[in-house]
Simulated scan of single mutants.
Amino acid sequence: MSPEAVRAAESVADRLTLERVGEYRFRGRIHDGPSRRSYGGEVAGQAVLAAGHTAPADRPIHSAQTYFLLPGDTTVPTEFAVEPVRDGGSFSTRRVEAIQNDRVIFTMLASFHRPEEGLTHQIATLDTPGPDEVPDLDAVFAGHPAALQWTTTFLDALGIDARFPDPPARAHAMRGEASSARQRVWLRTRQPLPDTQLEQAACLMYLSDLLLLSATTGPHGEALRDQDLQVATVNHSIWFHAPLRVDDWFLHDQYGRWSGGARGLAHGEILDRSGRLCATTMQEGLIRRR
């Protein structure tokens, strides 16, 4: 089997695989090929797994706040050091550092909570056509083959399918247009994932990093990959509300809430196909003119 076929068959769960090298220490895999900047969602997803492997089994993750400190290198092993901050009566807290070449490149504080019954409501609603009813990528990027190639190559590399109910900020920018500070995208992994709630949560963290910050660029008619912009995620947070299968379509409804001071702040709501709110996201990033 060719390397290309092997990569095509690889699941997101495979990409997040960790080797346990100590009670509170784990090691991620390296990637073949030339050195590239690590995808932030991969490091964050592995950190969720590392923290979860040390938390009580009856406490699923309910929140994670992360900071990206230095760019990662795909050809260097990443060590994940977990600190068991606290195990209370119903909550557990874990701190995780991702380390490459003896430097901390990423840090996360995660909380786990024993399931309980309580008051229930949500404001978020599913107000978009389903993934089978929206245009494919060829239609979204019609007339802009370079943007189509970049998008499909990016999704292929991450093992993700995406469908856009409305053209995303990047598609508008390619046409020289400004757009709304809201963008919606249906997402799923291309390969089936394990059934465990921890692995599904780690894979959701992986996907939740995708495109979110670009929602802040729509009103400016620019794309994050424009040559005159320096872009990097500073922090990313997620709150898990309900279990979600990430290998089935879900909607990430994204809002560019603010931009200024060479930073942007985006907020997202993740809903399953039934309209249940399963997670909330926030991301702040550097968006600096070169």
Rank of each mutant, 00 (worst) to 15 (best):
I105H: 11
G264A: 05
L119H: 15
G260F: 03
T233N: 06
A242I: 03
A202G: 05
H31Y: 12
P77Q: 04
L16A: 07
H220R: 13
L193Q: 14
V185P: 00
A201N: 15
H241T: 06
R290E: 08
D166G: 00
P131D: 06
A81W: 09
I160N: 03
M282N: 07
L212K: 05
L251I: 04
E177N: 07
L126D: 05
I30Q: 14
R225Y: 15
L70I: 04
L210V: 08
L251F: 03
R94Y: 00
T78D: 05
I30G: 12
G41W: 00
N235A: 05
D253F: 02
L211R: 14
C278Q: 01
A50S: 10
R103V: 11
D209I: 02
A9G: 14
P84L: 08
A171K: 03
Q122N: 07
Y255S: 08
T93G: 12
D136P: 02
H62V: 07
I99H: 07
G264P: 06
G45C: 02
A201F: 00
A55D: 07
G130L: 09
R36L: 10
D138P: 05
P129F: 03
A202T: 08
R184K: 13
R257N: 13
L109I: 13
A181S: 15
A8T: 08
V85I: 13
T54D: 09
S111H: 07
A147N: 05
R225G: 11
A124E: 10
A50Y: 06
A232P: 14
E42L: 11
G130R: 09
E117Q: 12
L229Y: 08
A215K: 14
V76D: 07
A47W: 06
M1Q: 14
L155D: 07
G33M: 06
Q230M: 11
L69H: 10
H241E: 08
L213T: 12
P243M: 02
M1F: 14
D14K: 02
Q65V: 06
V185S: 06
R94C: 03
V140N: 10
C278Y: 01
M282Q: 15
R273F: 04
E199Q: 13
L49I: 06
F154S: 12
E4W: 08
S180V: 03
E116M: 11
D102I: 01
P115K: 08
R95Q: 13
R170M: 14
V82Y: 04
A215I: 12
V43R: 04
F141H: 12
R170V: 12
L16N: 02
P167S: 11
A173I: 04
S180R: 15
F250G: 01
F240I: 03
A81D: 15
A162I: 01
A44N: 09
V134A: 11
D136T: 08
L213N: 10
E177A: 11
E269K: 08
R170I: 12
P219M: 06
S35R: 14
P168R: 11
T196E: 11
T153F: 01
